[in-house]
Amino acid sequence: MIIVPEAAIADLVTPEDAFAAVEAVFAAMSRDEARNFPVVREALPGPEEALYGFKGGVDVVGGALGLKAGGYWPHNLERRDLINHQSTVFLFDPETGKPTAMVGGNLLTALRTAAASAVSIAHLARKDAKVLGMIGAGHQSVFQMRAAVKQRAFEKVVGWNYHPDMLSRLADCAAELGLPFEEVSLDDLGARADVIISITSSTAPSLMDAHVAPGTHIACMGTDTKGKQEVEAKLLARATVFTDEVAQSISIGEAQHAVGQGLIAEGDVVELGKVINGDHPGRSSDDEITLFDGTGVGLQDLAVASAVVARAKETGAAIKVDF
């Protein structure tokens, strides 16, 4: 069995690696060559108010079988100087069930989540997109921005956050990327942004239907649990809705609210993998609003972790143990 600790991950995987792995697994899912298992997510008792769960799956062609165990501890940063999201990926031999690897999952989760929105931008955003809108300024937001700017020739970043004092994180990241940054209202963000990434843990919508201009591509990346919501349900009724996995989108993703209110049906939600495979045209006009409901599937974690393990073996960074 191979162990790749969290501290080694940054030297073993790039955002480009994560993009390629996530794009490939979305395509495999739509070809019925890879399958996610039902998500298990539970609130832990006690004062930490933590959410803990498992996401897993099997990729027949890619040879991946496993799960990611972890969750969200909302007080980690303030109490322990640890990031709030904590996770570990476990891989198994699909032929025998023997464990093959244990991989630090914190940076992997950030990279694969950013890769998913980047894949959606690559396949769905207008080619002439110039302004990137960011809703949310938490730990994940900078990964999202760095991945997004590789997909279009953005000239500016505009941002909004529930806590404005945190927007310096977005401003610093934009400066690092050589882009001007401006703090704006949600009305202004929706009117000016050609691509909007929402990455919050909100349980009430911030981006409303009236905010969003025709032709916008929106990547909703924060809703992965029943009750969470980042955008008004009416917006999904106006948009063409894409997702990583339909079953998760309508049950724990952003589409749970629009479906629950009868504004859209399950059949209105399209797997992004169908666009990647050429089975769906994707964006049909410059005025169409496209929305990607990124719920986060276990196969994303397995795909990126498998790439890390392969690189660790090549470079000698893998720790081998008898198990």
Results as ranks from 00 to 15, higher is better:
residue 3 I to Q: 05
residue 10 A to L: 03
residue 24 A to F: 06
residue 28 A to P: 10
residue 28 A to G: 12
residue 31 R to K: 14
residue 34 A to I: 10
residue 39 V to A: 14
residue 43 A to D: 13
residue 48 E to H: 10
residue 49 E to N: 14
residue 55 K to I: 14
residue 56 G to P: 04
residue 63 G to P: 12
residue 67 L to N: 06
residue 70 G to N: 10
residue 72 Y to V: 13
residue 75 H to Q: 14
residue 77 L to S: 15
residue 80 R to F: 13
residue 84 N to I: 09
residue 84 N to Y: 08
residue 86 Q to W: 12
residue 93 D to Y: 10
residue 98 K to G: 12
residue 100 T to A: 12
residue 104 G to Y: 14
residue 105 G to T: 15
residue 114 A to W: 10
residue 120 S to R: 11
residue 127 K to A: 15
residue 130 K to N: 09
residue 139 H to L: 15
residue 150 K to I: 00
residue 158 V to T: 03
residue 162 Y to P: 03
residue 169 R to A: 02
residue 178 G to R: 11
residue 185 S to T: 15
residue 189 L to W: 03
residue 191 A to V: 01
residue 193 A to S: 07
residue 197 I to F: 09
residue 198 S to M: 05
residue 202 S to C: 03
residue 203 T to L: 03
residue 210 A to T: 08
residue 211 H to V: 05
residue 221 M to E: 08
residue 238 R to S: 13
residue 241 V to E: 07
residue 242 F to P: 03
residue 246 V to W: 00
residue 247 A to R: 01
residue 251 S to I: 03
residue 261 Q to K: 07
residue 281 P to N: 04
residue 281 P to C: 06
residue 282 G to F: 07
residue 291 L to S: 02
residue 293 D to T: 00
residue 294 G to N: 00
residue 300 Q to I: 00
residue 316 G to M: 05
residue 317 A to E: 07
residue 322 D to M: 08
residue 323 F to I: 08
